[in-house]
Nucleic acid binder design. Sequence first.
DNA 1: CTGATTTGATTGAGTGCTCAACGACTATCA
DNA 2: TGATAGTCGTTGAGCACTCAATCAAATCAG
Lengths: 179, 179
Amino acid sequence: METSGTRWLSAEEQEIWRAFVGTCHTFFAAIDAQLQRDTGIPLAYYEILVRLSEAPDHTLRMSQLADAAASSKSRISHAVARLEDRGWIRRRDCPTDRRGQLAELTDEGYAVLVAAAPGHVEEVRRTLFDPLTPEQVRQLRAITGSILAAVGNPPPCEDGDGCPGEPAPPLTSGRPAGR
Amino acid sequence: METSGTRWLSAEEQEIWRAFVGTCHTFFAAIDAQLQRDTGIPLAYYEILVRLSEAPDHTLRMSQLADAAASSKSRISHAVARLEDRGWIRRRDCPTDRRGQLAELTDEGYAVLVAAAPGHVEEVRRTLFDPLTPEQVRQLRAITGSILAAVGNPPPCEDGDGCPGEPAPPLTSGRPAGR
DNA sequence: CTGATTTGATTGAGTGCTCAACGACTATCA
DNA sequence: TGATAGTCGTTGAGCACTCAATCAAATCAG
């Protein structure tokens, strides 16, 4: 497991990598902070409410909701419980599958969402779309797509168990500084 | 507080926004998963170790470490406690300021970092730099910079308290669907 | 029809983060 | 010197997320 074969990041790549990490962190913190401050809804929960608002009858099975929000059943279960406490979602038994639960946006939940939406959209505009040129927005879409594809496609030979054709295990964001 | 003045996202913008959110989430989850799986170090802690490894004598005051890692004192305090439990960091009193604490990377901590680095770097390459063209990497840097600047620059007139010149409160990622 | 498997959803433990409160020390300034 | 204000770092509560375990109901295979 030594470093000789490692394709370390160049100084420039490392700078870009760190900027990317930092920016994503700061960006989402800002989006979340605006929502929390102005409406009391965390971004994660906001997205759940949005998915429900887009569903027929403002209702979705728990697993469909999990799929729509790209999250785990467990997370949805916990989150819906909190949202139910706040009166924004109601749970109901599923008529066609006795295992199932339906999550339904309450009128109050919908009202909260409608009230929160303008502020949130403005923050997204202000911090994402406004500062970018239309060309950059297109670039961002392409970049996003490429990254997502790469993340989804694990390397040809799953590392972990010795994989004959591959050189060696990979590396991190820049060589650790020697003393 | 009604929506008439809201600059809602177009269908395309909304698609880009959601793709961006989803991709960032998936991307960082993958980076973190690789580290956890292959080395047992979460990304957040890995970054703390990296900052220390870059400091003279592998040592930093707690607040300097917080600055370097762009995080709160509280977070650093908790995190260093955990890392100390694992034997990767040692706390020492600061000789010049009796309030202060020095965080020092232990030899074991450094060794762990050195061992983890290649795999982490490879994952960053595989999921970020490899799938992008050199041109896209440049674009990403520019985009990152613009977003960060926008996040840092709050809007001309802090919303919240009525701000005469501004139209109205802003909005979120797409108009909530009507029933 | 019955037993085994799969699916839907919940639960609880463990971890990490944030925020506010605090104690200890240093710096400032009269 | 002595009060006041600021800084350094820790702590504990509260919240969100993950993972593994669990239970109940549906589905499948013989």
